[in-house]
Design a protein around this nucleic acid. Structure first.
Lengths: 184, 184
DNA sequence: CCAACCATGTAAGTTGTTACATGATTAA
DNA sequence: TTAATCATGTAACAACTTACATGGTTGG
């Protein structure tokens, strides 16, 4: 069996777009997809070996010495469709920010304020990044068929980041002791 | 050193609210907190042992045979404040739904439609659960000091779920081939 | 020629889940 | 009395990260 779990899905998915080396698969996780899915070298290379053993991908010597470029096989495409059809196994929740808010009573107000601050900064950062990616996608020529799907993915990130900004604003108002009112 | 990572934070945090057995800590993860943080027995019990060895919690025989109830010590409270002040280590992204959308081209349209369907159902479910929790929190008498923080936590969940519903609606419109128009 | 990048792979370690083993207590 | 729940703990395993080891290639 190919290495289970969704690593195989991610690797096959990337190869379904175009052939790539392990290094390039990792790079794919560094750009658009990387905001929603992560794999490290330590997973990718063994996974490629397993997938090739199962005939789901086909490796061939790459243009550089010692490099190997993998393409997806017909069996691989079928297998990928099957994997994608499985309902996603949601990872157990581990939200460090909300863990800290939940135990807000156990820390000084300043710590919470700093947490909200950095949450906000991060959300703004992500929005800027997504805007840039969106602009890039609009001028994409090579993979036009994929653009609607990639755009939808990015859109999910945008909406999540916007929700986060709303939350920060609301929470700041609710948890920050209101300043003394200016005299009338 | 106590077992690192945020397991200790979660366990100390729960004990900072009130003393509990390992079983009860696990139960805490089953209700409000459980929607944002998860720990399994296999983590909790060893962690409690480590924390006690470090003098951060203090166990005493519980009301049942073989049961042990832990309370947080003064040193534990200080340590917890320190842990909470560290900026949250965000877990590497692994969004199974968005992985599938990103590779939308590799699957039949019906599979994507089903995915959106179940994403929507899940978001609605979560909203209903959060509404129920919110109602419960409003009548909470025992831990009034914590209620604002717990409410803020729930609110984050609500906003995220609402963002997901928006995303589903938008994505359905963008990716579903429009039905043939009714005749005028 | 040197820094940056392309490229692969493994080994060790950490983290976490699951299943199992065990048994007490409570409520129907 | 029997099922559900309370309660603890461990062992096996799965998943993943990190660091290391190695070396080719490209561009300034």
């Amino acid at each position: 069996m190919a290495r289970q779990s969704q690593t195989a899905t991610a690797v096959l998915g990337v190869l379904s777009i175009e052939p790539a080396t392990g290094y390039e698969i990792r790079q794919a996780m560094g750009s658009v997809l990387g905001h929603f899915w992560h794999e490290s070298f330590g997973q990718i290379y063994p996974c490629l070996t397993d997938l090739e053993a199962d005939g789901l991908v086909q490796g061939s010597p790459g243009e550089r010495a010692n490099s190997r470029r993998y393409g997806i096989t017909a069996a691989g495409r079928t297998h990928l469709a099957g994997l994608l059809a499985e309902s996603p196994t949601r990872q157990p929740p581990r939200n460090g920010t909300l863990l800290r808010v939940f135990f807000g009573q156990a820390q000084p107000p300043a710590a919470l304020a700093a947490l909200l601050e950095s949450t906000e900064a991060e959300a703004r950062d992500r929005l800027a990044t997504f805007a840039a990616i969106r602009a890039e996608l609009a001028t994409e020529e090579e993979h036009v068929e994929h653009v609607p799907y990639w755009t939808a993915t990015i859109r999910a990130g945008e909406l999540a980041a916007e929700a986060q900004l709303t939350w920060v604003a609301e929470t700041r108002a609710a948890l920050t002791p209101p300043a003394t009112l200016p005299e009338p």
